[in-house]
Simulated scan of single mutants.
Amino acid sequence: MSKIRNYLAAAAVSAASLCGASAGHAADLIGLSVATLANPFFQGMTKGVQSGIAAHPDLKLINTSANGDANTQTNQVTDLINQHVAALILNPINANSIVPVVKEANKKGIPVFTLDRGAACGGCQVNFLETDNKALGKEGADFIADQLKQRYGSVKGNVVDLEGLLGTTAGDDRERGFATEFEALQKDNPGLKLVARQAADFDADKAFNITTQLLAAHNDIDAVFNGNDDNAVGVVRAIRQANRFKPIGDPKHIVVIGIDGTEQALSSIRRGQMDATLSQNPVTMAQQSVNYVEAYLHGDKSKIPAHQFWPHLLITKATIDSAAAKSYGLWGDEISH
């Protein structure tokens, strides 16, 4: 856990150590564009940006949400540029569609910081701060393999892959990490089968509908990997509605793992319905992004990495109340209160 503590310590670096803003400096406008506020993860991210801004009196936030529409995001970011913001923090809906407005900001001398999801242009972002999404996908595949080995004595079984929102760096990288590791596992374990791979787009209702169809077509599904917790919540609901739920440890239990650490996922894990989530912490990650904005505008730019992975943590029923989980931060619980 030392690596996680080191990262969290970095997030707590005071404004004074990051900047040398002079007294009386007029507040700089910072434009934020998140993909959507319908997803609790981005609610946590927004809370982190807001608390980060509050810690820096020389910054003022203009907050926007694109409601899941890339064109809306483009228009909103264009408007922020026209308001002459001092910096942009962007959570792109699509890595490619955001590029023109990022380049426009670059032309106007407005630094761009991307958060959780990046823009598909080299050198156009001062800092891209994300979780290691390829590692999340890989660890999801390994978790499923471990659970199946405990069940059968060897790594075998039928697995479903419910992809996230492809076209985002997070969705693409998680799928790449999972698929690469799963294929490697299959080479050594021929009894490990992928019975379906479909994109549920980080959407609980879509995941519910897809899983309902898959459960009707397959009576021997052992595990489901999910691109995020919204997918996983939809899967759990479909399993229960189809009367296919069996408790963890039962040989007919369908292993379900998600990604993010949302309140719904944590509740499902506590009830023994969902096996695990690979939790990120959008609150502390967003606070660090604001610290980098502050450092860029008023401090030492040389301390800002071009790209950084924020730590993540596997959460199961056995670890959800552990000291390690509390130290890392169960953000899903925090924003639900």
Rank of each mutant, 00 (worst) to 15 (best):
G137T: 15
S51I: 11
G122A: 05
L80Y: 12
G140H: 13
V77A: 06
N94E: 08
G122N: 13
N91R: 14
N133I: 11
A145C: 13
K103T: 08
I110Q: 03
K108L: 03
D58P: 00
G123T: 10
L129Q: 14
A135Y: 14
V99D: 00
G137Q: 12
A135F: 10
C121L: 08
A70W: 05
L61V: 08
G109S: 05
A120F: 05
D58H: 10
L90Q: 11
P111D: 04
I81E: 04
Q73G: 01
K103Q: 06
K108W: 00
G122L: 06
I98Q: 07
V101T: 11
K107N: 09
L88H: 00
A119D: 02
V102A: 12
D146R: 15
C124M: 12
A87M: 05
H84G: 07
A119S: 09
A145M: 12
D132H: 13
S97A: 15
K138L: 10
A86V: 10
V102K: 06
E139V: 13
V49K: 04
G52Y: 03
L61F: 01
N67C: 00
T114M: 10
I53Y: 02
V85G: 03
L88K: 08
G109N: 01
G123A: 05
Q73S: 06
G137N: 13
A119K: 09
G48M: 01
G118A: 01
F128M: 09
S97C: 04
A70Q: 09
A66D: 00
E130N: 13
S65D: 06
H56P: 03
I81Y: 01
E104K: 14
T114P: 11
A135E: 15
D69R: 13
A70M: 06
V85C: 08
E104T: 11
N67F: 08
G48A: 03
I62C: 02
N96K: 14
A119T: 10
N127S: 15
I93K: 11
A87R: 14
G68V: 04
H84W: 04
N133M: 04
T78D: 10
K134W: 06
V101A: 04
V101I: 11
G140K: 14
A55W: 00
V99P: 02
G123P: 06
D132L: 03
L88E: 02
